[in-house]
Amino acid sequence: MSLSVRSLTVGYGRSAVLTDFSLSVADGEFVVVAGPSGCGKSTLLRAVAGLIPFTGEISVDGEAVRGPSRDRALVFQEDGLLPWRTALRNVELPLALQGVPRSIRRARAVEWLERVGLAGFEGYLPRELSGGMRQRVQLARTLAQQPSVVLMDEPFGALDAQTRASMQELVTEVLSGTTTLFVTHDVDEAVLLGDRVVVLGAGEVERERDAILAAVKA
């Protein structure tokens, strides 16, 4: 599934957060959008997710985005899990919303939790899990949803370096072949994960640390 963003503008006039932004992500490609805090990275993802009004055109496989849909899953920086649901029931949620029968969705959720390395933690509440584990659950939930496009909003921004490294490894593994738009302010993360790197305000740059740094500062 390919994603195309053309002449995207969010907000009006001087308070516009994004102006005339264009980007395309090919089927199965992992594109990282980098840029300093407050440059509109999150806004871009929220627009693509269909959560906020925008002008311009966003389409997935040629079909225009008009609102949120299960086709475009959003992974949040933190606290994206429903705190009153156990890890298992959080992963089950997208399947429950689709009306998948309980026994089937439960079995699938167990598999996804195992896939992200959380076998045995099915019954834990989010507050009983570490930040890294919670992000693993979010990842499992996103995978269970089987979206066409995965949108990730600084998903590891709140994690310590070691946890972050293992999560980056996991993401590369489980999302390979999935069309992904990944937002981060971390230049090293951009280099590590992206098939391509786009710096907000400077356009596409070479996938190399110095080039990205220069573009971010410009």
Binding site: R46, A49, G50, L51, P68, S69, R70, D71, R72, A73, L74, F76, D79, G80, L81, L82, W84, L93, P94, L97, Q98, R141, Q145, L151
Partner: peptide, 29 residues
């Protein structure tokens, strides 16, 4: 109620009613 939970359920394809019963009611308890 934090909007993030509602956003999460909407991007999973949740309808207005699903948001009400899966997010708003449990979250406000």
């Amino acid at each position: 109620l934090p909007t993030i939970w509602e956003d999460a359920v909407r991007t999973m394809g949740g309808s207005r009613w699903q948001v009400l019963f899966r997010v708003v009611l449990p979250g406000t308890l």
